[in-house]
Nucleic acid binder design. Structure first.
Lengths: 211, 211
DNA sequence: TCTGCAATGGACTGTCCAGTCCATTGCATT
DNA sequence: AATGCAATGGACTGGACAGTCCATTGCAGA
């Protein structure tokens, strides 16, 4: 054991933890609105009333801050999805999940899109570390969906041979693609159409005709 | 009529036109690989063996260059799609279209994704002009698909009440979303799954069961 | 061959920005 | 009260980059 400490496990007082969290949340908001490359540390400083020393006290560099932002956004998305899919038991409930996604997009006024989707598009080719982190985010997300579908399969709503993993990935793709078109056109309709497609893709495996 | 000329209609000698085109194509390649914000004019100069004066001789500013790059990439995508969808008459032909998309992604080694999709994600919230241009690109693209589907409907392969416009938009969304997941994971499978979903969504409207 | 303009060369400026460095302040433990 | 370290302040550096400016070169028509 050396006396050295990495920035990651640097001792944090409660006061410090609050400041760090405040920085992460503000950075998440800024990056969501403008993209990681378009948010300077100076802007983060202004918005959070912090100094450069504080940023470099709590984060090794900008990339480390982005890493924490991705973690935060991923956990938010997983939480929102899990609350709709954690006990998925009907196509009506699945529709409610789709409506939640659409409502979330509407709430952003058609700006920003998906917090991790935008970052994936921006960073996947720039930073291998970010790419792997975002791959995990997508994987976690599709797993939440997959578990919901699996439950529907267990209770007999879906055919027993339904490839829930494959369908879940396709559903995430539909959401991501729909959001890109929606934010480019500033209309909700492309996202609605994409989600309709995703839900129809699930219904195709319905054990009984449900609508 | 004033003597003033905008940069857009500045007289171009054949020699100048060649240089301008060379710049646009090189910039398109660089932007495809690294994103618009991550390509500096100095890099474009290096790659094309041009000087700063030349860039500003042929383009009003960086944004104007990006505009021409989007035009180029859009025309390439439309051409590739039209060659598969221009005389669409069967689900087999539609499958060939999907395979072309997958092959194009593979050819990029899983890097870069869709030239206009990446730009849409990056620029839609940064530049209103770029956003509108990219919205038109997506619209043109889905129109090509829509016309293909309409033809299939006309020849009786699809139900007469099929909403070809809606299905076409959903298909574009599937492709875009599939590409994001594919480039983030550096695997082709998410794109394949998304395209399977899109094709299934079309087949749902098949007049006769085709498999 | 002369003239005018397109084409090209390349230095220079102003700004933005990530990261460094040297402080001072505040708090908790002894 | 003294000590040590976390927390904070803020000036400074070096580099990147879009855009400007003043040239020189090349070519085509008169």
């Amino acid at each position: 054991m050396t006396r050295e400490r990495t920035i990651a496990n640097r001792p944090l007082t409660p006061r410090g933890a609050v400041t760090k969290q405040r920085i992460i949340e503000a950075a998440a908001e800024l990056i969501y609105l403008h993209g990681a490359e378009n948010v300077s540390l100076d802007t983060v400083m202004d918005v959070t009333n912090t100094s450069k020393s504080q940023l470099y006290h709590y984060f090794a560099n900008k990339q480390a801050l982005i890493r924490d932002v991705i973690d935060l956004q991923t956990s938010r998305i997983l939480a929102a999805n899990a609350s709709f899919l954690g006990a998925l038991d009907s196509f009506v409930a699945l529709r409610a999940w789709g409506d939640m996604i659409i409502a979330a997009f509407r709430a952003s006024s058609g700006i920003g899109g998906c917090p991790i989707g935008s970052l994936a598009s921006e960073l996947s080719t720039q930073s291998e570390e970010a790419r792997l982190q975002l791959r995990q985010s997508f994987s976690d997300w599709s797993n939440v969906i997959e578990n919901g579908l699996r439950r529907m399969r267990q209770i007999g709503q879906l055919d027993s041979d339904t490839d829930v993993a494959a369908v879940a990935v396709a559903m995430v793709a539909a959401v991501q693609g729909g959001i890109i078109l929606a934010k480019t056109s500033r209309e909700t309709r492309p996202l609605e159409l994409a989600i309709d497609m995703a839900l129809a893709y699930v219904k195709r495996h319905a054990s009984v005709v449900v609508g």
